[in-house]
Amino acid sequence: MSQLRHLLSAGDLDRASAIAILDTAEEMSSVNHRDIKKLPTLRGKTIVNLFFEDSTRTRISFELAEKRLSADVINFSAKGSSVSKGESLKDTAQTLEAMGADAVVIRHWASGAANVLAHSGWINGSIINAGDGTHEHPTQALLDAFTMRKRIYGDDSKGRDLVGQKVMIVGDVLHSRVARSNVKLLATLGAEVHLVAPPTLLPVKLETWGVSVHFDLDTALRQVQPDSVMMLRVQAERMNAAFFPSEREYSRLWGFNSERLAMLKPHALLMHPGPMNRGLEITASAADSPNSTILEQVANGVSVRMAVLFHLLSGDKESK
């Protein structure tokens, strides 16, 4: 596979690099089941987790991945003030550069912030996008693909893509970085993607995305018979902005409940990137069902992030 410098978008990965990362994550996953869950791979490397937006889950997942690879880890929580948001990204980046960061894992409220950091010249290290605004969250897509592959192929996962898999993504696609990254990576891995959402929560010009779009979840479930259903979180701020009439109606039409669970194929996966709004986009009975992969996704997140760090940082040194 080609040497990656940054991971900004799931679109940065071709089939070979995506599968290489997923295969490495298999190795990392076995480390995570040992008594001593640590590899010396990134000893002496400094990784900064730069979070401009609260996200405890993603941050601790990256932090654990970094520590298991023996990197020196710094957490930098920089919630930008509204007055000088722009300056703070540049100033912070230059500060980290001066301190010699080898990689920066960035979570930012602004779409494209990771791209700006990677191409601004403010910093030389590798940039890993841990979620930028409503743009992308590529490691989430990787861990979702890893989870699907693992459930389907078990110990025989290595080298596999997702050809023949039907994946249905349900909910607020418009504002979802998880959906954008998943649509790209699933296409790269050969899966067939279906989006189901109220029309208010779909972006315009979807015809160029290479996906099927449905408004009615029940009809879609019946017709498509998906192998995996990925529920998206409904952000609290959407509820008061006239995207849909009420939480009750949303839940009734696009929420996942036990009736819809019964419509799935027996071994179909029910996924959610977390954190869930139980009772809104997913009911407790569905979330806690055997089909649910929600906790596996969390565990796999660490392995996949270890694999990404490994591929970006342990390769040839000439780019430094």
Partner: peptide
């Protein structure tokens, strides 16, 4: 400084 930043802040 008004353009040397992330898109949404510019």
């Amino acid at each position: 400084e008004s353009k040397d930043c992330e898109w949404a802040s510019a």
